[in-house]
């Protein structure tokens, strides 16, 4: 019979080991990609068109493409998401409608990314006849990140003290004025955090853009919202599975650029959150 103290020691060590097994791969992934990717990064790599069937040159159109897609997704999802969060937090507390909306959001968050791709293909590319285009891809990505923005904005709104609303209303403000002047300003950090997380998510996703916008090889910049573009995650997929004999530097370099963008977004979100948590005045 082992003593309870010893059992505890063993158990805690195993738990720690398991935790490290979950977290360490993050470090390993970062290490591998940074180590092999850095030699591939140069000013030319970031600012030039790909050449000779993507085996040389840069990744500029993929960077620009991802930028446009993310921008479009946020322009669509941010207002819709924040307004939806306002509805849930300020207008429909605990009604059956808000329960239904909550279920819809949970489901939207759980829909497989490739199914969003199918949806985008059927609705935006086919039904609305946008074709495979920045517009169709952005809208698809926007719908995908909508739950992220709604959920975090709602949490941010809910965490604003109820008293702020009562004070504002009791001073003869309308409900909308109360939301605008006494609630929303104090929820901004949380909304910002959610938006940045959504940006990171949209920048990294491949499946939703496969059939809605992503171009396999298009060494020029887009002219309008109805153009196809290359995008970083799809470009990495293409480089690593579809194009044989690519210099590893180009693959790793692309992975590094993509990972940097995505992780930077998450890092910024984490920093904003902890900064405002420390500064909270109520």
């Amino acid at each position: 019979m082992i003593s309870p103290r010893l059992t505890q020691k063993i158990a805690f060590s195993l738990l720690l080991l398991a935790t490290l097994m979950v977290i360490l791969p993050v470090a390993v992934v970062l290490f591998i990609i940074v180590k092999n990717g850095l030699p591939g990064i140069s000013w030319e790599f970031l600012t030039q068109m790909p050449k000779s069937g993507m085996r040389a040159g840069g990744i500029l159109p993929a960077i620009i493409g991802t930028f446009y897609l993310v921008l479009g997704a946020v322009v669509f999802a941010l207002p819709l998401g924040v307004l939806a969060a306002i509805y849930l937090s300020e207008y429909s507390k605990d009604s059956w409608m808000s329960r239904l909306v909550r279920l819809a959001i949970i489901n939207l968050a759980g829909v497989p990314s490739v199914v969003f791709g199918l949806f985008g293909l059927a609705l935006f590319v086919g039904f609305f006849k946008f074709g495979a285009s920045i517009l169709a891809g952005s809208l698809t990505l926007g719908i995908m990140i909508l739950p992220v923005i709604i959920t975090s904005s709602r949490e941010a709104l809910d965490s604003v003290p109820k008293s702020f609303r009562e004070v504002s209303l009791s001073l003869g403000s309308t409900k909308l004025q109360t939301i605008k002047y006494a609630v929303l300003p104090h929820a901004l950090p949380g909304i910002l955090t959610g938006t940045i997380l959504g940006i990171g998510r949209a920048a990294g996703e491949t499946a939703p853009i496969l059939f809605t916008v992503a171009a396999f090889y298009l060494p020029r910049l887009p002219h309008s919202a109805f153009d196809q573009v290359m995008a970083l995650p799809y470009h990495l997929y293409v480089l690593s599975t579809q194009v044989p004999n690519v210099d590893q530097k180009i693959r790793y370099g692309t992975a590094l650029v993509l990972l940097t963008i995505v992780l930077l977004m998450n890092l910024i979100a984490i920093m904003i959150r902890s900064y405002f948590r420390g500064k909270k005045k109520w």
């Binding site: 935790t19 993050v26 990294g204 491949t206 690593s240 992975a255 977004m265 984490i270």
Partner: peptide
Amino acid sequence: VAPGKLKEVLKSGIELLAAIPSVVLGFIGM
């Protein structure tokens, strides 16, 4: 089990893992 400071670090680590795009994990796996 984890003490306060470590807890925050581990949680951020988990968030970073969640953030790595699937295509990057696929690439690393390959």
